[in-house]
């Protein structure tokens, strides 16, 4: 299943190059180009990590699980079930 993500990413990259990169380069909007390129690279890096199943990159869920103790104490306080 993961190789299918390769096609999806390729589709996004192609559309991005055709729709944004060329006009931005022609307009010499280098800042826009750098920011959008950086976001695209981030998606690509995590996409490749997902496809390879290597899990080399930090999982963003880490930022969510930080709140586990708070969530547990809330559930304990209000006796939330389920």
């Amino acid at each position: 299943m993961p190789p299918r993500l390769t096609y999806s990413l390729l589709l996004f990259i192609t559309l991005f190059v055709l729709k944004e990169v060329r006009p931005l380069y022609k307009a010499k909007a280098y800042k826009e180009l750098a920011v959008t390129g950086m976001i695209m690279m981030l998606a690509l890096a995590y996409g490749i990590d997902y496809i390879m199943g290597s899990q080399l990159l930090p999982n963003p869920n880490f930022l969510i699980t930080l709140f586990k103790p708070l969530s547990q104490s809330f559930e304990k306080l209000l006796q939330v079930t389920g």
């Binding site: 996004f12 729709k19 826009e32 920011v35 959008t36 390129g37 976001i39 981030l42």
Partner: peptide
């Protein structure tokens, strides 16, 4: 990022959405 237009980030953020939903 103080960008001139928000349209330039639509596709890169779209790719992020697809990848991160699968990843997270």
């Amino acid at each position: 990022f103080a960008l001139k237009s928000n349209k330039v980030v639509i596709l890169p953020l779209g790719a992020c959405l697809v990848v991160f939903t699968l990843y997270m």
